[in-house]
C-alpha cells in the first residue's frame, strides 16, 4: 500500500473566497461513517449485555450472571454447531474467493468478448433464485450424486456454500479491477519481468483491497446462511444458524448470545494479534 501516500495540503495561491479544500473530508461524510458504525454496533452491544443477563428470556433484564456462558460451555450441541459453521465458512470463503479472483481477472481489464453478458449472468445466478428453491433443487441433485457414488460427508455442504459465496466475492473484486490502469503492468513487462513476477508484484497487490473485501463478504454470507444449509446438511452437520433457527419456536435462550459474544471476542483477538505482528514486521 506504500504506492500511494497522499498529501492533502491545500495548494496555495487560491483566489479569495474559496475555502481550503480538504479532499478527505467531504461535508458530513465522516459523521455518516461514525453514525454507521454506531448503528452497526448498537445491536451488538445489546446482544453482549444480554448475554450476561440472569433471566432465561432474551428480552427482560434481571441481574448480572455468567450462567449462560457456563451453560454454553457445557452445551456440546452449540459448540459443535459453531465449529461446523467456522469450518464451512473458512473453506467456502477460501475456495470461492480464489475462483472469483480468477474470474474477475478474466472479465475485466480488456475489451469485451462475446458471451460476457452470459458469463456475468451465470456468475450471479446463485444470487437470483430464492434460497429455498436453490435449497430444494441442490438437495435433489446431491441426493442423486450420493446415491450414484456412495460418497457422503460435509464436502457437499461446503460445495453448496462455495457456490452462493462466489458472486459475493466476485463483485467487489470486479469493481476493483474495472477500468484499472494497465500502464504499471505493461511497464513491468517491458522491463522483462516474467508474467508471474508481474502478477505477484503488481497485479495482485493492486487487486488486494478487492480480494479482502470479497473474502469478508463471502464469509459473512456463509456464516449467516440458514435455508440452503437446512436442506443440504447431513447428520451431525448442524451449523450455528441452523441451531438458532431450530430454537425459534420453543424460545431462544441467551446461550446463543453468549456464543455470539465469544465469536466476536475471538475474531477481535485474532485480528488484533495480526495487526500487532503486522506492525512489528514493518
Amino acid at each position: 500500500m506504500a504506492d500511494r501516500t497522499l498529501q492533502t495540503t491545500a495548494p496555495g495561491g487560491k483566489p479569495a473566497g474559496r475555502r481550503p479544500f480538504d479532499l478527505k473530508r467531504q461535508t458530513g461524510f465522516s459523521e455518516i461513517a461514525w453514525f454507521c458504525l454506531f448503528v452497526l454496533y448498537a445491536p451488538i452491544a445489546v446482544l453482549i449485555v444480554f448475554s450476561f443477563n440472569d433471566n432465561r428470556s432474551v428480552t427482560l433484564w434481571t441481574e448480572f450472571s455468567l450462567r449462560w456462558y457456563r451453560s454454553a460451555l457445557n452445551n456440546q450441541g452449540i459448540q459443535n454447531a459453531a465449529m461446523i459453521s467456522l469450518q464451512v465458512g473458512a473453506v467456502a470463503t477460501l475456495v470461492s474467493t480464489f475462483f472469483a479472483t480468477l474470474a474477475a481477472l478474466a472479465t475485466t481489464r480488456n475489451e469485451r468478448f462475446r458471451g460476457e453478458g452470459l458469463v456475468y449472468a451465470v456468475i450471479n445466478q446463485p444470487l437470483m433464485i430464492p434460497e429455498i428453491v436453490t435449497a430444494v433443487a441442490t438437495l435433489a441433485l446431491f441426493a442423486l450424486i450420493k446415491q450414484l457414488t456412495g460418497v457422503g460427508g460435509i464436502g457437499y455442504l461446503m460445495l453448496a456454500h462455495t457456490v452462493f459465496c462466489i458472486p459475493f466475492a466476485y463483485m467487489p473484486i470486479r469493481a476493483r479491477l474495472e477500468d484499472m490502469n494497465l500502464t504499471l503492468e505493461q511497464a513491468a513487462a517491458d522491463l522483462y519481468a516474467t508474467p508471474l513476477q508481474v502478477f505477484r508484484r503488481i497485479t495482485l497487490p493492486l487487486m488486494m483491497p478487492g480480494i479482502v473485501a470479497g473474502a469478508m463478504l463471502a464469509f459473512v454470507v456463509s456464516f449467516d446462511d440458514v435455508i440452503i444449509t437446512l436442506m443440504v446438511a447431513g447428520p451431525g452437520e448442524t451449523t450455528l444458524p441452523i441451531y438458532i433457527f431450530g430454537q425459534m419456536r420453543r424460545g431462544i435462550t441467551p446461550e446463543t448470545n453468549a456464543v455470539s459474544t465469544l465469536i466476536v471476542l475471538l475474531s477481535v483477538v485474532l485480528v488484533a494479534l495480526l495487526f500487532f505482528f503486522g506492525k512489528r514486521r514493518r
Binding site: 446482544l47 464469509f219 459473512v220 450455528l240 444458524p241 433457527f245 455470539s260
Partner: peptide, 8 residues
C-alpha cells in the same frame, strides 16, 4: 458485527 448471526 456480521460475524454474529443474522437472527441474533
Amino acid at each position: 458485527p456480521f460475524w454474529t448471526n443474522l437472527l441474533i
